[in-house]
Design a protein around this nucleic acid. Structure first.
Length: 216
DNA sequence: TGGCACGTCGCC
DNA sequence: GGCGACGTGCCA
């Protein structure tokens, strides 16, 4: 049982919420490359034997193409192309997954609500929990628990490492699992590698803007 | 600055 | 209570 926990997707909205909270990450983690290069550099032995990517049948790019939000759902087909959609993969992918195919409008509404709720959380630090209306429950680790309390962030669930299901078994984290208490290096969420602040910036400057453009 | 180990949290 | 995983301090 290497990945017996709930699917990472359920953590997405939590992740978005926590981004607004203060959780100073390790100062070492600055600007990590995105997830895709990680797969490129993966030893062939690992990718073939130890990893069982759910997207193995479909490449990451193709997956994004499949999951990207239809343009007609918002009416503004100009700037917000697939590339910008991919800039906030967490929200878009998650909402697409749980809203099911065919409900593109609902998908956009969901994602917009999530981003909006996130922005509200970031600015006012309110704790309404209304953003949970479209997704799973807001776990207690969000910024709601005591305001500035440092809570653990959650995996984004959509980056390449998060999509991996099986530990490599050869990295230091896997080898030292008992003492290291760390997830496999190849499964370490890209968002968690970054400083929380950088994630907030990206989410608010790009993702939120695009989503609002779709939403309004 | 990156990696490792420990403490602790969160979920089952 | 057990286990997986995140946060953070410490060290090379």
């Amino acid at each position: 049982m290497l990945w017996g926990r709930k699917p990472p997707a359920v953590n997405v909205n939590v992740n978005v919420n926590v981004n607004g909270a203060h959780a100073h990450a390790h100062a070492h983690r600055t600007a990590m490359p995105r997830a895709e290069p990680l797969n490129v550099h993966m030893p062939s032995k690992m990718s073939a034997d130890n990893f069982l990517s759910p997207l193995g049948q479909v490449g990451g790019a193709e997956c994004m193409n499949r999951l990207k939000v239809p343009q007609q759902s918002n009416g503004s087909s100009g700037g917000g192309g697939a590339g910008e959609v991919c800039s906030t993969p967490g929200v878009i992918v998650m909402t697409t997954l749980h809203s099911g195919a065919g409900s593109s409008v609902a998908t956009m509404t969901d994602s917009a609500f999530q981003i909006a709720a996130d922005c509200q959380h970031s600015s006012s630090a309110s704790c309404s929990g209304s953003n949970a209306s479209t997704n799973t429950t807001v776990s207690a680790n969000s910024s709601c628990s005591g305001g500035a309390a440092k809570r653990k962030r959650k995996r984004c669930g959509v980056c390449a490492p998060c999509r991996r299901l099986i530990n490599c078994g050869v990295c230091s984290s896997c080898r030292n699992r008992k003492t290291g208490h760390q997830i496999c290096k190849f499964r370490k969420c890209e968002e968690l590698k970054k400083k929380p602040g950088s994630t907030v910036e990206r989410a608010s400057s790009v993702g939120a803007a695009d989503t609002f453009r779709w939403f309004f």
